[in-house]
Design a binder for these strands. Sequence first.
DNA 1: GTTGACTTGCT
DNA 2: GCAAGTCAA
Length: 471
Amino acid sequence: MSAITSIVWFRRDLRLSDHEALLAAAAEGPVLPLFILDPVTDAALSGAQRLRLKASLIVLAADLKAAGSRLILRRGEALATLLTLIAESGARAVRWTRLTDGPSIARDTRVKAALKAQGVTAESHGGLTLLDPWRLKTGAGAPYRVFTPFLRALTQETVAAPLPRVRLAAPEGGIASEDIERWRLDAPMGPAAPALADRFRPGEAAARDRLDEWLDGPAARYPEDRDRLDRPEAGTGLSDHLALGEISPRTIWAALDRAGGAAGPEAVRRQLVWRDFAHSLLFHDPEMERENWRREWAAFPWRGENDDAERWRRGETGVDVIDAAMRELWATGRMHNRARMLVASYLTKHLLTHWRIGAEWFRETLIDWDPANNAMGWQWVAGSGPDAAPFFRIFNPETQAGRFDPDGAYRDHWLTGAGAETFRAMSPKDWRKAAHDERPAPMIGLKAGRERALEAWARMREKTGAVSAEG
DNA sequence: GTTGACTTGCT
DNA sequence: GCAAGTCAA
């Protein structure tokens, strides 16, 4: 037992390995690990990920205990809580891992300035992404707006090797922690909570096990199976671990590197670069969680909240693959990446509904929700985001289903099979009647919906004056 | 100013 | 095969 030197403020970095802030703090003396349920964190967290976070914090607390330390949980405004803990513990420094979303950056900037004004060392550290989000710039000195050049630029750089697991000294006793049960993080999911919690394995050790499992098996078949809706085991299954930082992207990167250029691991590396790209985009445009990344898209005649959107959320659109995917989302807190593109395309194009409404539903339902990935993904599909050629890309759900769920196993599972039963059992009361009914008729034909979206796009082009026939 | 290139698509 | 558009060099 010795006097505490630094506080490590955990947020989306719930791990003990490859943790810069923790390692730097431990090198200076005894550490007080702290998680704060503050208003900014609270506002961003929604149903399923709240539950996921609770599970992760319980494992982190156990891991810290096993390492001879302990996790302190507090609820309250971030700065006030930190100042209280500094007073209680005598800490002289606070360290954390930087985030890239606007609200977090705003909060952390305020906290850092206030702590420094009090003579406390306040320092943020990298590790959320492979490279810091400001690192890669185009020849003109601007942030990249297109993925491929970003990928090429990142390939030229060296991604740092993961840092070793921290060794902690036991902190002084007497600092009280709150009881996580009293935070009621599972409350928003209601009766669905236990079934949902049964489906994930939280924590750093589980994340590493999953990575090893994937490398030993599914990795070899990943190039052929990754797009198959009916082969969910093909994916790495690391997204929820990554979203809460139970494993670091650099750790995954290094493990994939050891696979020596095999096609599967290389394809997943590319996915990690997409993640870095998303964080870089959000860092440079903090508004993009809510505003069109291409601001001229304000002229697009998207509909706001509407009955079709509610049917989309409940999986009652009448388009089989869309409804299957939306039920999977509700029942598991996950959705296949390709299914995400399909449901996003259907909502924003066929149903002409604003991507923000879809993005908000993903925030509420995904256990792997991440502000940067969510914002970029939705805007990429909607057409308001990065990457050119948006209107080459109105997905035909039936064509897609035929290609990536050829036997209909995925659709059957969620529409009539065991998945459908699970979904009914986990659904709110007012959803259940419809879930038992016959399949509803689609709200708009696939062809008519596509044409309507193309017309809306053409109208926007006229309005914004960006007419290609100009030259 | 020109040109090659573009994660997941379409008919 | 084509591409309603844009970016990076």
